[in-house]
Design a protein around this nucleic acid. Structure first.
Lengths: 218, 218, 218, 218
DNA sequence: AATGAATGAGTATTCATTCAT
DNA sequence: GATGAATGAATACTCATTCAT
């Protein structure tokens, strides 16, 4: 336990935190807040109070709202990639591996809606923060490599055709999964069909898996 | 020409516009502004001055920033659907029709980046405005119907498999195209590959067309 | 009938009014609005729409919000005095006359709460409009004369003491009645007693009548 | 002295105040401003600058104009009641006590015209703020109790009649005093008699004292 | 390392009033 | 007489950021 109860008498018993804890708490609050309201909609005040810190600490640790946003974005990317790294496809044959990969892609977006909002928001701001973040630029996506490798194995094994660009495939898979959740609310409203319910997600999963593997062919 | 030049000497020659022109001008400015900066980032002042009107006229015609946003969104949807309605696939055999449809989907997003930003932003706000807009809910998407019809023809003709859900296919196609442009900046930065250049777009088009029709099969 | 139905086709059948009617309608709307919200709180827009006229007509007929307020105030005073003039005490003996007078004073404020708000509001603005209104200054209060005359008769008849100043008596009676309604809401809240209900008013009436006539004497 | 002079050279020598001082300064400015112009007429900007603070501090300390108004109202009531509590009538026989009480009532309104304006304005707004203020509702009026007690003593001593309701008497006395100052400007204008000058006030005082004690009886 | 207080520049919105027909 | 359109100046309120301790 790093937290030590203060024997404060005036204020309602406060918790003293280590600097790292404080920083982490602010960052976590920032991620939640930015994911929920975007860069423009988020309030520094709200982040501070959610982190049980004060506004000035936010500036002390992160310098500005923009830098905090960058940090939140980096932390999000970090987490995404950590998740991606857990995916092990080596034991599976190429087709199964590809299916697993698509499943995974859909699942983690489904379970981490914050990612979607952060990514969409960052893009809405012209990828300004990503571009200025060494970390985001340096770390490359494990998923992209998995796709490349799986494609290779499939081509060798004769189950996938030659010449598919891994990044393009990555983008199409990401697009199909990302868009489903990102624009799900709008589409649910417009098409009068609840796309958020588990069955709908499951059905869509089958659809994109099949589409990726076999296309529309009979 | 409904606009009449005034021979005013004091003020910098003003143009009298009809109410419709004024309203349209504000709406156009709003679309540009919202598309560029989102609901939160857009400034009513900026919209007014871009429309060569004053802030109060914005309120006179649209009531509030939110209502203006809804109007801009509706107008965007209206335009998208008008474009979609121009697409005529009846003369083409099913596979060619499907290719044409994907092409079209990619092309118009490429040429109308504002759509992407408006749609993404609306979704970031929980589809709040779409849900309160009768117009957006009433008008259904011509594209969805085209997909359904093309699928049917393909199944009948034996070139497409049975059981593909039109809405799910619509979402996957929209996802693949939308995501490419929506997150293009971020991906360009991260993967160090310029996805905005025409060749890249052309290559991606071929990729998704092929993926949709044949999947990864050899 | 001065109003003539228009055979308008576009707009929902409008009523054409004579200028006098229009003016009167605006004035009536202004009185209602000013009485409800005070000079600062009232909205020209609201007055116009309540009068089924447009804002510019208000300016056409009255020049400005302030002048309209003055007109509304004058009209209120006019009505008050017209009411006061209807009071005939000549047939009553002095004490009964005085009782009748107090009754009347309480009753008409009770039935014309708008008066209270207009008077209070005008005073809050330093009697600015009254002072600039010839009409308000010219017409003197019938009530004051009635009081003077009744006092005289009472003194002569030996039922009232000599030396009571009519204006001071007028002010004390007006004060007791005015204050009851003017600050009734606040006092009801603070003292936890509903002063608005008829019984409470009736009881208070008895109280002030008795107080005025006999004071606290046994 | 909690305030410390800064030796600033750029800005006009600023005074650092304790939070309490700042808050108190804003509240005092608000009372002055609201009393002078009412809730609608008062300007937050003006209050801030009068308090030598800035607008945002007003919001920092009080939340909104309305809450500031409530605070100003509470503070006014607080002051009124503190004044009322200083009145000690126990040593006086009932009639003298009652006279003293009326005197006092007239005097403090005469010396605290702001009270009148605040009370009138609050009532014009339907007692909205008083009703939401615990403080205003909780603290009961010392004056009312004094009246009740004095009445009792008078009845026991045979100088006052039985059955006079203390609250009704309170209202009539308050009405006679309040109205004199509240509507004094208007009445001075209309009746062409300066009611503000000391002699007029003194004369009116004698009048209401006598009226309350003896009524119009000879 | 932490905090309460303070601030300038904005931000949507309102309102009385005027213009042009 | 009557009207829709247009405008400038405010107005309450917000927010990221900094100061002083």
């Amino acid at each position: 336990m790093t937290a030590i109860e203060q024997t404060a008498q005036g204020k309602p018993s406060r918790v003293r935190r280590t600097p790292e804890e404080t920083r982490a708490s602010i960052l976590a609050a920032a991620r939640t807040e930015f994911a929920a309201k975007g860069l423009d909609g988020a309030r520094v005040d709200q982040i501070a109070s959610r982190a049980k810190a004060n506004k000035q600490l936010v500036y002390y640790y992160f310098g500005s709202k923009d830098e905090l946003y960058t940090a939140a974005l980096e932390s999000t990317y970090h987490e995404i990639r950590a998740l991606e790294r857990e995916l092990d496809l080596t034991a599976l044959p190429p087709r199964e591996a590809m299916v697993r990969l698509i499943d995974f892609s859909l699942d983690y977006l489904n379970e981490h809606r914050e990612f979607i909002r952060m990514l969409a928001d960052e893009n809405a701001h012209g990828a300004r923060h990503v571009r200025s973040s060494e970390m985001a630029l340096r770390t490359n996506s494990p998923l992209l490599e998995l796709i490349a490798e799986t494609l290779d194995r499939g081509v060798t094994g004769g189950v996938f055709r030659r010449g598919v660009d891994p990044l393009e495939l990555y983008i199409s898979i990401a697009g199909m999964t990302f868009f489903y959740f990102a624009n799900g609310l709008t589409m649910s409203a417009i098409f009068g069909r609840d796309l958020a319910k588990p069955q709908a997600v499951a059905s869509y999963r089958d659809h994109i898996v099949r589409l990726t593997v076999d296309g529309l062919r009979p």
